[in-house]
C-alpha cells in the first residue's frame, strides 16, 4: 500500500482500494457517532410483566442491525419520567393514557400508533363475579388489575363517570402481572372484580367456559389508542431514521416477534382520527 500511495503522491495512479476503504471507515464512524446512545425509551403502566431483559434482547436485535440503535425499557414511572426530563430530545414508546398525562409536563409529539391487525384502538372492561350485580356493590371491593394502581384508579374513574367516580376511591387494587392473571384471580375468589382489556377477556372466555359462566360485564371504556411512539425535543436524523425503522418493524418475522411481546402487530402513522381520540 505504501508503494501505491507514494506513486499516487508522485503523480501516479490513485490507489482506489485504500481510498474506498478509508471512505467506508469514515461512513461507518459517522453512523456510529450519529447513533451512539440513541435509544427508544419504553414504559407501560398497563401491564406488570417483568419481561424487560427479554424485551431488550428482542428489540435490540432488530434495532442494532438497522442502525446501531437500542431499546431501553423502564419498570417504574418515576424513574422513566425523571430520566426523560433530563434529556433534550428522544423517542418514547408509551401507553396512550400515559402520553396524555405526560404531554401536560413535557412537549411531546405523537408520531406512530400501535396496531393489532388493522385496529389502533382497544377497550378496557370491568368484569365482576356473579354477586356484582350493580356498581354500588363495587364500593370497598377488591379489583384485580394488571395496571399500576394510579393507572387503574384513573381508568376506573373515567369508566364510572363523574356521578360514580367516588367508588373508584373506595376500591382496593390487587396488582397482578397481566390481564389474564387479573381475570383468573377474580375467578378463583381473590377479587370481586377485574379490570382488563376486552381482548384478554375474549381470549379467556373462549378458552375457559367456567370463567365465561361466572362473570358479569359491568363497564366498558371508550375506545382508547394502543401504544404510541412519541418524540420530544429537536428531532434529528437519528430520530427520523428510528421512526422509519419502527414503522417497518412489524414487517419482518423477528421484528414482529419483538412487537408481539408488547402486544402489538405493528405501527402506523398517527392520523386525524387518532389525534381526535387523543385530544378527547
Amino acid at each position: 500500500m505504501k508503494i501505491k500511495l507514494a506513486r499516487w503522491l508522485s503523480g501516479g495512479i490513485p490507489p482506489v482500494l485504500p481510498l474506498l476503504m478509508a471512505g467506508t471507515l469514515l461512513a461507518l464512524f459517522a453512523t456510529v457517532a450519529l447513533s451512539l446512545n440513541q435509544a427508544i425509551y419504553y414504559y407501560n403502566p398497563e401491564i406488570n410483566v417483568n419481561n424487560y431483559a427479554s424485551l431488550k434482547v428482542e428489540f435490540d436485535k432488530n434495532l442494532r442491525v438497522a442502525g446501531g440503535y437500542e431499546f431501553q425499557p423502564f419498570s417504574e414511572i418515576d424513574t422513566f419520567e425523571k430520566f426523560i426530563s433530563e434529556k433534550k430530545s428522544g423517542l418514547l414508546l408509551l401507553s396512550s393514557w400515559h402520553f396524555t398525562l405526560l404531554r401536560k409536563k413535557l412537549a411531546i409529539e405523537p408520531l406512530l400508533v400501535g396496531r393489532v391487525g388493522d385496529k389502533s384502538t382497544y377497550r378496557k372492561v370491568l368484569v365482576g363475579n356473579k354477586s356484582m350485580t350493580n356498581l354500588e356493590k363495587l364500593r370497598g371491593a377488591t379489583i384485580a388489575t394488571a395496571g399500576s394502581k394510579r393507572f387503574s384508579r384513573n381508568m376506573l374513574k373515567a369508566m364510572l363517570g363523574e356521578e360514580n367516580s367516588d367508588i373508584a376511591d373506595s376500591v382496593i387494587f390487587l396488582v397482578a402481572p397481566k390481564d389474564i392473571d387479573a381475570l383468573l384471580a377474580m375467578q378463583f375468589g381473590l377479587a370481586q372484580a377485574a379490570l382488563g382489556s376486552e381482548m384478554a377477556l375474549n381470549a379467556v372466555g373462549e378458552i375457559n367456559n367456567r370463567f365465561r359462566d361466572s362473570i358479569n360485564i359491568l363497564l366498558k371504556s371508550d375506545e382508547l389508542l394502543l401504544q404510541i411512539v412519541a418524540g420530544f425535543g429537536q428531532q434529528g436524523l437519528n430520530e427520523k431514521v428510528m421512526i422509519s425503522i419502527m414503522e417497518k418493524f412489524g414487517g419482518s418475522k423477528e421484528g414482529g416477534n419483538a412487537l408481539q411481546m408488547i402486544g402489538l402487530d405493528g405501527f402506523t402513522k398517527i392520523g386525524k382520527t387518532e389525534m381526535d381520540i387523543l385530544d378527547r
Partner: peptide
C-alpha cells in the same frame, strides 16, 4: 394471583408446536 412464564421458542419450532404469537406479551 400471578404467574411468571418462561418459554423456549426454538423448541416450539423444533417440536412443531403451534404458538399463539399474541400470547408472547404474557411471557
Amino acid at each position: 394471583a400471578g404467574s411468571r412464564i418462561s418459554l423456549d421458542v426454538n423448541k416450539t419450532t423444533e417440536y412443531g408446536v403451534e404458538l399463539n404469537s399474541m400470547a408472547l406479551s404474557s411471557v
